[in-house]
């Protein structure tokens, strides 16, 4: 019984069942509030209607998104910063639903971006498959993106710390200029991924 609602700062008190998951990052307060302030409509949650523990609605997942890049460089896009789902509500398509809602929100005014992108660890096969099902494709492989040291060699691949930059074009990119085939063969260094 999922409904989508805008995320509020106070929701952070209620997100432990989602954020205690090992794959979910806990950011500092400023990071969340920056998203709420700059992209208020791109930070939303999925809420379950249940009456357990006197909840008015349990948070089953959330999406943190933003927009960035320059239009003249064909880089104006929506970025998925975090999308996460409570383990009890997985395998239901909830993450896909949150992604689709983000696409819906940014594919028209006031954002009207060219594409949506996200980073996923190369070894996170499940996540990659999920995004491929949603129409995303690998645009490039970012070497050492999740590593602790800034890499210098673009050919030194490592599945544990490299990321795939995955993209899905939105209706504004009529000619498909922001996506490419065989992106997994295109290697870049983290500093080259700037908008």
């Amino acid at each position: 019984m999922t409904s989508i609602k805008p995320f509020q700062m106070t929701d952070l008190f209620e997100t432990n069942s989602v954020n205690l998951d090992t794959l979910t990052e806990n950011f500092n307060g400023s990071f969340y509030s920056q998203y709420l302030t700059q992209w208020p409509s791109l930070f939303f949650k999925s809420v379950e209607i249940n009456s357990d523990f006197q909840h008015s609605g349990e948070i089953s997942g959330y999406m943190m998104g933003k927009t960035e890049g320059k239009l003249d460089k064909k880089e104006w896009h929506t970025h998925i910063t975090a999308v996460t789902v409570n383990p009890q509500y997985r395998r239901l398509g909830l993450a896909s639903y949150l992604c689709k809602h983000l696409e819906y929100s940014t594919s028209g005014d006031p954002y009207n971006t060219l594409f949506v992108d996200l980073f996923v660890k190369v070894n996170n096969v499940l996540a990659r498959q999920l995004y491929e099902k949603l129409g995303y494709g690998v645009y490039r492989r970012v070497i050492g993106y999740y590593g602790k040291v800034m890499p210098t060699d673009r050919n030194k691949i490592d599945n544990d710390i490299d990321a795939f930059d995955m993209r899905k074009r939105l209706p504004r990119d009529v000619k498909g200029e922001t996506v490419r085939e065989n992106g997994d063969k295109v290697y870049v260094l983290p500093y080259e991924v700037v908008f």
């Binding site: 509020q8 307060g29 400023s30 709420l36 208020p40």
Partner: peptide
């Protein structure tokens, strides 16, 4: 400190649908 900044930024950036949550937080 973060809370002080978030409330003040909320007003400056006019995110009126989030300020109530910032103040409550």
């Amino acid at each position: 400190q973060e809370v002080e900044d978030m409330v003040s930024n909320g007003f400056e950036q006019l995110v009126l649908n989030k300020i109530e949550g910032f103040l409550e937080f």
